[in-house]
Write a protein that binds this DNA or RNA. Structure first.
Length: 211
DNA sequence: ACGAAGATTGGCT
DNA sequence: GCCAATCTTCGTC
């Protein structure tokens, strides 16, 4: 099948919760250090900009770090978490609407030897790319790439040809945002049912071939 | 200028 | 299950 890079307009949709589900099954690709690596997006979280207490842009907070969230959709927002982990987000919606989608897990598709080397692992295992901090390491994404366009930079997203039906999509509370008060339990984390590469073991399903 | 907290991970008990 | 690692960011003094 033909590889089709998602156009900028794809990211301009105003409903970040719907887009978070639409991104499941798409292919996240990087070409960094001249090495092509890619994985299917299997878990996402929606962060609904100014109205979401879990969002870095809650109440229209604007700082040097979060400024890129206010750009028109279709750019990367990458930030350092706990001083260690680079977390990759997709900025969505129109300019000045700071919605973003955190990519929490991917299923490796291409460049697996490169990803293994970057992760210092010997063989394929969900730990390679299951989790927002480890998938960036596998793909070579760092905060240097925050602000990069997803249509003309070393990071982009492609159609996979695989259609994920609503029945295959599960939803639950977002992870690691207990500080978000009444927004803490919103079911804005989405994942592909029973996919072995989901970050949270409890929601992964019981038939993982890696157990 | 200071210090607490963080959209996590991996190793050890 | 618990906890340290590690450092930027941001609120407060």
């Amino acid at each position: 099948m033909k590889k089709q890079i998602l156009p900028r307009e794809f990211y301009w949709h105003d409903d970040v919760v719907a887009l978070s589900q639409a991104l499941l099954g798409k292919i996240l690709v990087t070409k960094i250090d001249n090495q092509l690596t890619a994985g299917m997006i299997v878990e996402t979280e929606a962060y609904r900009g100014a109205e979401d207490k879990a969002s870095h842009a809650y109440n229209h907070r604007r700082t040097a770090r979060t400024e890129i969230m206010y750009a028109a959709g279709g750019v990367a927002y990458v930030y350092l978490c706990y001083g260690l982990h680079h977390l990759f987000n997709i900025v969505t919606a129109n300019k000045n609407t700071p919605h973003a989608i955190l990519v929490r897990a991917i299923e490796p598709v291409e460049g697996i030897p490169v990803m293994l080397k970057r992760r210092n692992m010997q063989k394929l295992h969900p730990k390679l790319t299951a989790g927002p901090g480890v998938l960036t390491q596998a793909l070579g994404i760092t905060k240097q790439l925050s602000g990069a366009s997803l249509t003309k930079s070393p990071i982009w997203i492609e159609e996979s040809g695989v259609k994920i039906s609503p029945k295959e999509i599960l939803a639950g509370p977002r992870i690691g945002i207990d500080y978000a008060q009444e927004h803490r339990l919103l079911p804005w984390r989405f994942w592909i049912k029973n996919n072995p590469f989901i970050s949270d073991l409890k929601s992964r399903g019981q038939n993982s071939r890696f157990q």
